[in-house]
């Protein structure tokens, strides 16, 4: 079964993928913090954020269709919650419709909040996509570790990344086998079969974990993992970071002065 989709686009050689991952993480995290902390009415600020993301997307070399597709996956979650916002909060009623005995009214304050939440959610989503699509997962983890995340947590995450697809495959095969053998039947029957599969999957995962541990011990594992991975901050990194820092501070200063 194919699981290549996670790192497929991080192999594109582009300005964004050549950046030092630490610089990329700090820069894009700063961008996201700025985005979510901006007042919904500050339209020029959002225009600047949008422009920054557009430029970075061009520099990443990732096809726009891919980014849009990834966004669409997350969109239903956001829209489902956000759609109710215009209907509550605020006094200034913009639109009112009565269906039978129920009156729906859209308020100005509600609409502003609706816009704010939508634009923040989608711009942040784009930033995360830019980060993870231009960095392969192991490199991302190493960079997180260099930035001060506890080593144990990073190692657990990297092992998880290594085994996620092995275990997922095992589960998919078990489910395929179950589906091939049992057609129809009551829902309760299927639930019980499913639960039994997950129980068996746990036992197998546990046994696999022990086997992996023993294999590691026999190769000299003592709880520490040593890696070779020199990270170097280059001129391009400095340029990327300074440009981003200057434009973000400009937005914030101008916002404070004229907002």
């Amino acid at each position: 079964m194919e699981h290549d989709f996670i790192d497929r686009y991080s192999r594109i050689d582009s300005f964004m993928s050549r950046l030092d991952p630490r610089v990329k993480i700090v820069g894009l995290a700063a961008l996201m913090v700025c985005i979510v902390s901006t007042a919904p009415a500050a339209l020029p600020a959002f225009a600047v954020y949008g422009a920054i993301i557009l430029v970075l997307t061009r520099l990443s070399g990732i096809p726009a269709a891919v980014i849009l597709k990834r966004m669409l996956v997350a969109a239903p979650f956001i829209l489902m919650i956000v759609l109710f916002i215009p209907f509550f909060r605020g006094e200034t009623v913009v639109l009112s419709r009565t269906f039978g005995s129920v009156t729906f009214s859209v308020t100005r304050e509600g609409l502003i909040l609706f816009w704010g939440v939508c634009v923040k959610a989608f711009l942040s989503l784009l930033s995360v996509i830019l980060l993870t699509a231009t960095t392969d997962f192991p490199t991302l983890l190493k960079a997180i570790e260099k930035l001060g995340c506890p080593k144990v947590l990073v190692m657990v995450l990297s092992f998880m990344y290594r085994y996620i697809f092995v275990i997922q495959d095992e589960f998919m095969m078990m489910r395929q086998a179950k589906d091939a053998r049992s057609v129809g039947g009551s829902r309760l029957f299927h639930w019980r079969a499913l639960a039994g599969m997950v129980g068996v999957l746990f036992v197998r995962s546990y046994e696999r974990a022990e086997a992996v541990y023993l294999a590691m011990c026999s190769r000299g594992f003592d709880g520490n993992v040593r890696t070779f991975h020199p990270f170097r901050v280059t001129v391009a990194d400095a340029a990327f970071f300074l440009t981003l820092a200057v434009s973000l501070s400009c937005v914030k200063v101008l916002g404070a002065l004229y907002g």
Partner: peptide, 26 residues
């Protein structure tokens, strides 16, 4: 966790986190 599992922490927790992830496919 690491006080109890010691050097087993990383492989055990890694594989079992992957299991929880797979179980969430239900």
């Amino acid at each position: 966790t690491s006080r109890v599992l010691k050097d087993r922490t990383i492989p055990l927790m890694g594989v079992l986190s992957a299991f929880i992830f797979a179980a969430q496919m239900v």
